[in-house]
């Protein structure tokens, strides 16, 4: 059998490398009975479309994104609550534990099996003219965000004026001065050359994003147990490789972009940001109180 494994990343991205590794691991443990056809660079559509295709059984697997998954499993959006995770190892222990299982159970109702979570990175703020080490620096800042509730709420809480805009239109909008800045993981900032327009990058680390690896329930439930174990294992192994790459790339990208003229800064007092955005958690307390409690406990 041939499995189509679709994702949106281009060569050079850790997700791309991990997908290639996954494609090598699967035939090895199924004795060549299952092969993987990796469809990279969004050739099977964007993340939302890939998720729909997987849920509908058109393609078997996708390394996807947290935002689109949250449109199906709103709980997944809570992973992006502002300043929730201190560092990546904390995230990994949460996602590989009960929280990950709970998200998988919810996703199965919508026809998606979550095999594991790879990383997408931690989001940072870039600005055209200054670094933003304190919440006060964000006051009134016109910042572009994705169309994502928690991100918009977080920047509103910090006193900025966030507005959603399509990723494809972002460079033009930044160049024209409609926005003073934007926020993204360093991989995205570098690949879209955003550091040339917004060279002041502050490592706010305000939001974590995962790369959920999903499989079509229709297809998954028809597999025998040995094949399921093999595929799940391959996704996890490739995941550790991806997490490692992601971590080291985060460091090397900073140096690369500094060499190309970007100015980096750390936040002065992370607690000040945490306090300023505490209200965002209250907004979701009513609907997802249990999950937020579990997340808080796991991250303390």
């Amino acid at each position: 059998d041939e499995v189509i494994f679709a994702h949106g990343a281009n060569p050079g991205n850790p997700r791309y490398a991990a997908a290639e590794m996954f494609a090598d691991l699967v035939p090895a443990c199924t004795g060549g009975e299952t092969t993987v056809n990796v469809a990279a660079s969004a050739t099977m559509g964007n993340d939302v479309e890939m998720l729909t295709s997987v849920a509908g059984g058109v393609i078997q697997m996708s390394a996807n994104s947290q935002g689109p998954l949250a449109q199906i499993v709103p709980e997944a959006g809570m992973l992006g609550l502002p300043f929730l995770f201190e560092d990546l190892p904390t995230v990994w222990s949460v996602l590989d534990g009960e929280v990950g299982d709970m998200l998988d159970a919810k996703a199965q109702n919508a026809g998606l099996k979550i095999l594991t979570f790879w990383d997408n990175g931690i989001r940072h703020v870039s600005h055209t003219s200054k670094n933003v080490p304190t919440p006060a620096d964000l006051e009134g800042m016109q910042i572009r965000t994705p169309s994502d509730e928690t991100t918009i709420a977080a920047f509103e809480a910090l006193g900025a004026s966030p507005a959603p805009l399509a990723w494809s239109e972002l460079p033009t909008a930044l160049q024209s001065g409609v926005f003073e800045g934007q926020e993204n993981p360093l991989t995205n900032i570098y690949s879209a050359k955003l550091h040339e327009i917004t060279p002041y990058i502050t490592l706010t680390g305000h939001k974590y994003e995962s790369t959920p690896v999903v499989a079509s329930m229709v297809w998954w439930s028809g597999l025998d147990e040995a094949t399921q174990e093999c595929i799940e294992g391959a996704a996890e192994q490739a995941g550790w490789y991806q997490r490692g790459l992601s971590l080291s790339q985060g460091k090397s990208l900073r140096e690369t972009m500094e060499a190309e003229g970007a100015t980096f800064a750390e936040v002065e007092d992370r607690q000040a940001f945490i306090d300023a955005t505490a209200g965002v958690y209250d907004q979701y307390e009513g609907d997802y109180g249990d999950l937020i409690g579990a997340l808080r406990e796991a991250t303390q």
Binding site: V48, L51, T52, S53, A55, G56, G57, V58, G67, A70, Q71, I72, P74, N109, A110, G111, S147, D148, E149, P164, V218
Partner: peptide, 14 residues
């Protein structure tokens, strides 16, 4: 059919 059923779970964000 399969795609339209899958789309029921795909909510817009705003």
């Amino acid at each position: 059919g399969p795609i339209i059923r899958a789309s029921q779970f795909q909510r817009l964000s705003e």
